[in-house]
Simulated scan of single mutants.
Amino acid sequence: MDVTRCLLQCLVLAGVCMGTEWLLEDTPMAADADLMARALWAEQLSLSLLPAYSLAPDPTPDPSQCTPLLHEFANISATLSNCLVSMARPVRLCQHCYKEYAQLKATMSKIGNPIQNSTVSCSTILLRSDRVQVIVTLNDFFDDLWSDSKCQNCLQNNSSGISNNTSKFMDAFDSLIQCFNNTMREPPISTEQGNFSRVCQNCNDSYRHLNNLYNEFEHTNALCIDLEDIMNSTRKLWSKTFNCTLPCTDTVPVIAVSAFILFLPVVFYLSSFLHSEQKKRKLILPKRFKSSASVANIQDKSN
């Protein structure tokens, strides 16, 4: 809108100046002084109507004030990268790297906020001064990784600590691992039930509790990559390493529903067969009706 207004003003003023120039050519020399004064007035008016931002350069911050923020971002991004890689296996990055991530976001806020005793920020120098935009690219990378890991689900609302659900899940996991370690120190036993070891007996309740917590958090969207990785590794350990099985309590309903579904085609074909037989019976004519019909045909032939 401002650009359009500026262009219109320039066109009007150009017309005024051109009209003044035409008058200078067509008037006698006595009126030259008055016309020159009008031309000078038109020039001063055109300059006064131009926007202020076109007459002065954009304010830029002092680079020496932005250098400390650049070093701060470099140090905290290196610390965060080291934490993320260190906690990649087993995955514990949400629980151990949230402080470094919060510091990174605080540094980005400092870069975007105005400098002290000034109205400009360091974002023009640090964030938008080149085509590559290294700081912006690194910040977007950390944001995408944090979002894909769903770390916010395992933290408090202000990301100042671990949530209560995460602490409860980790306590249940520690109890299960302690049960595994204590039971493995005991001598193995063999039972008539096949692959039902002492670990499966002693740690069954702890495993059920951990599995129930995971299912509960899954329905309430309270899971992050840390808890998902813990549950996946625990289930592999329970089923493959210890060869334990968790009995399914819904076996009877599943069998009943499956049997009902398998029995539906039998019911369908049986009902179709009975329905077709009933129609055939309705199409059979009685003998009395046949005899009367034959008599009528004989009479027609005789006539």
Rank of each mutant, 00 (worst) to 15 (best):
L70T: 04
H219E: 10
C154E: 12
F273L: 07
F180P: 00
L55S: 00
P265W: 14
V12G: 00
A172Y: 01
S272V: 01
A37L: 08
Y98L: 07
R208T: 08
L227F: 02
D58S: 06
L80M: 12
A52L: 12
A56H: 11
E43C: 15
L24R: 15
D148K: 10
D130S: 12
C6A: 15
M36R: 15
K236W: 06
A102N: 07
R89C: 07
Q193F: 04
H209V: 01
R128M: 06
K301A: 09
D62K: 11
K287M: 11
T60Q: 12
F242S: 03
L47Q: 05
S163T: 08
S86V: 06
L227W: 02
L45V: 02
T27A: 10
G194D: 09
N215E: 13
K99V: 15
T137S: 11
I111M: 11
R288D: 07
I177R: 15
F169H: 09
Y207F: 15
C94H: 04
M1R: 12
N139Y: 02
N157Y: 00
P61F: 10
T67N: 06
T220M: 10
M108R: 03
P51R: 13
T124P: 00
Q116N: 10
C200T: 04
A106T: 03
S159F: 13
Q103K: 10
A256I: 15
C10V: 13
D205G: 03
Q299G: 04
S167K: 15
F141K: 14
L285K: 14
Y101G: 00
D130Y: 03
L49E: 02
S239M: 09
D205K: 15
L13F: 06
Y98N: 05
K168I: 02
T245N: 00
R281A: 15
L270I: 07
A52N: 07
K110V: 07
K301G: 03
S123W: 01
C83N: 04
H219K: 15
S54V: 15
L262A: 12
K240T: 04
V136R: 13
F196K: 05
S291Y: 12
T107F: 03
S190F: 04
P253F: 05
K168A: 08
F217T: 09
T249N: 00
D130F: 06
V12P: 03
H219L: 13
L69P: 11
L35P: 04
L50A: 14
V91L: 03
D174S: 14
F273E: 01
C179T: 13
S239Q: 00
F141T: 13
N215A: 08
N195S: 02
S291V: 14
L80P: 02
N243Y: 03
S147W: 09
L285V: 12
A30E: 09
S159M: 09
A222N: 09
N75M: 12
C151T: 09
L127G: 00
W22I: 08
T245L: 01
M108P: 04
M1K: 13
F242P: 03
P61T: 10
